[in-house]
Amino acid sequence: MTDAGHAQRLTELLRTNADSLVGRWVDAVAALLRGRATKAELESDFREFYDVLLPLVGSDGKDTGSPAFGEIRSFLDEYSRARVRAGFTPSETASSIFSLKREVFGLTENEEDPQIFRQLMAFSGLLDALGLLTFEFYAQAREEIIREQSEQLLELTTPVVKIWEGVLAVPLVGTLDSARTQVVMEKLLEMLVETGSEHAIIDITGVFAVDTQVAQHLLKTVVAARLMGAECIVSGIRPQIAQTIVALGIEFGDIMTKASLADALRYALRRDGVDVVQREVR
């Protein structure tokens, strides 16, 4: 990997000119980012990067997966992650690394050693590989954030609420996918136990489409609730969904369905021996 003899001259140059080089690099990147990162921050990041980079000079960056690159990989991972959170674009993140190239080229302009050219080529390849790594880590971090957010959203959009003593309701809204339905249904069953509720109303007025899998999850939940000693009522089935259910040949069997959430609530209350009566208003 590292051809010590050949890389020597470049390594030596990089080592002796470290301060001025990092300084110029920081200036260049600070200009690029137009003040969105302070020079102090950049300075400390780049110094760290520079320190882990030096022992790798001489490599052409084709083997960034090898153990020798462990340290710089974890640095770039952390660096890219921080950049994602701070709202920088992937190009800004990678070009910060690429910017070092121009500074190093400037430094070697007046060199006469013919070997230095070859060494620079390799160094350029190395920085390219490292820059690309930031892309990879950037994308990974981004995916993690999206996953976290969609989980949070799931929690927010699927509340299980107690609407009466012994009656829970889950208003489902939007497009139901299999994963989401499963999460909601598990939460609903947990809540039945926690609140000691014998009735649960699953209201699907706000649901635009169901597929076979989702319908299966709904059915399984109803059966599971029954095993636990509770009853589920499905309310608010839209005409289109009723058609889908019939077309898909899904057997809703003996599941209690009601036109609206209000009807379902009235039914649940009646089962519990509560009657809702209208009093004359004077």
Partner: peptide
């Protein structure tokens, strides 16, 4: 007192205990 996870598993297993009465507690 059947736990939710147990109930979900039984349904998946294909066992619905037809005819057995159940209660929350």
């Amino acid at each position: 007192g059947m736990r939710p996870a147990v109930a979900i598993t039984l349904v998946e297993l294909g066992l619905t205990l037809g005819g057995v009465r159940t209660a929350l507690d």
